[in-house]
């Protein structure tokens, strides 16, 4: 049976001011898997994620989420479809406590104990910092909080933008463990990542972007095993990204 596509972008174009950033992005995100979006800086990865979330408006094309075109929907309505977004800057509310940051991500304003236990099992440090201001957390802890915010309720799709950026290797390993746990729960994830060690460890499928378009789509295993393809798509061996 063919895998179900949860998120489908068809010819999506995005302008920011007078700049034409996305030139017709076609992308499929299979349900229950982790799709990695690769590409050099400025290829349009973050713009793609922000366009999906409605934070920047698509000027052309369709964005289908479970068959519904969400391209013209407002950001809060898109989020309420069950799409969680972890931006590159993490979007942590530094003046709020860890608890308050997570509470904001619940639709009913209260925690599901089982899911909270799962978050604590994955990132125990958040339990110890529960009543601390999020602004006092380290970079890695903030990233854990940002990802936990997307996990604290069942989401249909998680969109995560470069979670490893600026983090120490030990913290990255911890995050990789977190993504493996998320994959076990069959959460669909669209991940932008520059760290190939991370991408290869967690990715099921991959799309490579260049100049505002997807120039390659396939399985992560195929890309990881083909250095020539890596060189052609990304300009250098993916091993060099580690």
């Amino acid at each position: 049976m063919a895998e179900k596509i949860l998120l489908q972008l068809e010819g999506v174009q995005t302008h920011i001011g007078r700049y034409h950033i996305l030139h017709g992005v076609d992308l499929s995100v299979p349900e229950g898997g982790l799709t990695v979006l690769l590409g050099r800086n400025g290829a349009g990865k973050t713009t793609t994620l922000r366009t999906v979330m409605g934070l920047w408006r698509a000027s052309a094309g369709r964005i289908l989420f479970d068959g519904t075109d969400i391209a013209a929907m407002a950001t809060p309505d898109i989020a309420r479809l069950g799409i969680a977004y972890v931006p590159e800057a993490m979007g942590i509310f530094t003046g709020l406590t860890v608890r308050e940051n997570l509470l904001l991500a619940t639709t009913a304003g209260r925690f599901d104990d089982a899911r909270l236990d799962a978050v604590f099992a994955l990132f125990p440090v958040l339990k110890t910092k529960w009543h601390d201001a999020a602004g006092g957390l380290s970079g890695g802890q903030k990233q854990m909080l940002a990802i936990s915010r997307a996990m604290v309720e069942q989401r249909r799709l998680m969109i995560v933008d470069e979670p490893t950026k600026g983090l120490a290797p030990a913290v990255i390993e911890h995050l990789i463990g977190g993504f493996h746990t998320l994959k076990q729960s069959r959460t669909t994830i669209l991940l932008v990542e520059q760290n190939f060690h991370m991408a290869r460890s967690v990715g099921d499928s991959v799309a490579v972007m260049d100049d505002g378009r997807v120039v390659h789509a396939g399985t992560m295993a195929d890309l990881a095993g083909d250095e020539a393809l890596q060189g052609r798509l990304l300009g250098l061996s993916l091993a060099a990204h580690q």
Partner: peptide, 24 residues
């Protein structure tokens, strides 16, 4: 209160409040 929490969060980062599903 929850509305107070939203106001405090909104003062910091409006965009993220919207991305969490709230109409700012």
């Amino acid at each position: 209160t929850r509305i107070g929490l939203l106001v405090r969060a909104g003062v910091e980062n409006r965009e993220m409040v919207e991305a969490l599903g709230f109409r700012i």
